[in-house]
Amino acid sequence: MSATIAKTLDMKGFNCPLPIAKTAQAIREIEPGELLQVLATDPGSVPDFKAWCRTTGNQLVEHTETDGVYRFVVRRKG
C-alpha cells in the first residue's frame, strides 16, 4: 500500500496551523494525481484537513486514527 504514497509528512506533535501550512508546501512537491500522506496528533487537524481539501480541491482519499495518530492521505488535484 505504501508503494502508492509519493511523500509522507510527519506532523506528529505539531499544532495549528503547521499541519495544514506544511501540507500546502509538501503538496507542491508531488505531481498532480499523486498521494501525500500526513501523520498528525492535533485533534483539530481532522476538521481542518476536511475543510482544506474541500476548499483547495485536493482529495482526502482516506483518514484514519490509530492510538491518537491521525493519518490523512491526500491526492493532489489533477
Partner: peptide, 11 residues
C-alpha cells in the same frame, strides 16, 4: 501570521 499562512495554504 497564523491566519495569513493558513489563508495562503488554502489557496
Amino acid at each position: 501570521l497564523i491566519l495569513s499562512t493558513t489563508g495562503a495554504a488554502m489557496g
